[in-house]
């Protein structure tokens, strides 16, 4: 009988990503509901010293797969290693993050393990000893609860910044173990030739606490400095709508929406964004949504907690000045 809850940690350049702590915290709650142990799986190169980070958040064990071929992340290598560990240890629940990397990994891993996987979930529960996952479908226009049939482990990804993070308890520590795996070059069917980073090089939007996004109403790439100034003052990252990205004003990595990144920051400020369905699908689970738009009838206001009907070129600079008073 499969036992235990596993979460797969995400790290980049040796830094543990925030989603990893969200997963550990949610994993702890599920493990408690099942009366089972929580194991974090951490992959990378020379990464073992990071393993101690998870105990205070509730992990019982941290399984570390350390190999030079696991840095940087490649789908083939990660899928090979994690699938071996899962088959050898048979966890009951396997959680990953619905970040760009997590979705890529989870999709392939589920295929390799031949199990069902619920993508981009916003709620998890244990009912009758099994995992029930809730997720938005049809661009957030409906929600489905799903269960897993004859499919072990029960596998899902969690939407970033939705699961609450436990208060770390420094007195708690997890047992750190070396993972037993082999990595055969034959498993690596694709070869990464080179990596090109967008010039942005900022905080990953899916991790940002606050996002200021601009759409068609920005009128051109040269005007984004207005949003960047506000973002600087309030400690936000800058995002963009699909139309702004399609117009070439902002890089693809800034795009929020069904066709870009799905984000749930504590504060989302939509400037000059009308609120197309595909944009709403990418940000409607944000905690507080503010819309600034000239058009009082723009659909974005129906999803907003606070609205300003007005010209963003007047309102945003004034807002930046007002926000400075609080810094």
């Amino acid at each position: 009988m499969a036992q235990g809850v596993w979460t797969i940690a995400e790290q980049r350049d040796g830094e543990i990503r925030k989603i990893s702590y969200e997963l550990v915290s949610e994993g702890r709650r599920l493990a408690d509901a099942l009366g089972q142990e929580l194991t974090v799986v951490l992959l990378g190169s020379n990464i073992k010293d990071k393993a101690a980070a998870f105990g205070p958040y509730g992990a019982n064990k941290v399984m570390v797969a350390d190999d030079s071929r696991l840095e940087p992340y490649t789908t083939d290598a990660y899928v090979s290693v994690i699938s071996q560990l899962v088959k050898a240890n048979e966890p009951a629940v396997l959680l990953l993050g619905a970040s760009v990397q997590g979705k890529d990994l989870a999709g392939r891993l589920a295929a390799r393990l031949d199990v069902a996987m619920a993508q981009d979930c916003t709620v998890f529960a244990i009912e009758g000893g099994t995992l029930v996952a809730t997720r938005p479908i049809y661009a957030g226009k409906a929600y489905a609860k799903v269960t897993f049939e004859n499919s072990w482990p029960q596998m899902a990804t969690a939407r970033p910044k939705v699961m609450s993070v436990n208060e770390p308890d420094p007195s708690k520590s997890a047992e750190v173990m070396d993972a037993a795996f082999t990595l055969d070059d034959a498993d690596l069917k694709t070869k990464v030739m080179d990596v090109v980073k967008d010039e942005s090089g900022k905080v990953d939007l899916t991790e940002a606490d606050k996002i200021v996004s601009g759409g068609r109403g920005m009128k051109g790439p040269e005007n984004y400095y207005i949003l960047e100034a506000l973002a600087d003052v309030i400690g936000a990252s800058v995002g963009a709508s699909r139309s702004a990205v399609d117009a070439g004003w902002r890089p693809h990595s800034d795009q929020v929406g069904q066709t870009g990144k799905v984000v749930s920051p504590n504060l989302y400020v939509a400037c000059g964004i009308s609120g197309a369905i595909q944009h709403l699908a990418g940000m409607s689970t944000s905690k507080v949504i503010v819309a600034i738009n000239k058009d009082a009838d723009a659909p974005i206001f129906q999803k907003a907690d606070y609205g300003v009907v007005g010209d963003l070129f007047d309102v945003v600079p004034a807002l930046t000045e007002e926000a400075k008073k609080y810094v």
Partner: peptide, 15 residues
């Protein structure tokens, strides 16, 4: 391998 156990309209976010 996956079963839908419930479908609903989006939760009211109280916005």
């Amino acid at each position: 391998k996956m079963a839908i156990t419930a479908l609903s309209s989006p939760p009211d976010m109280g916005r």
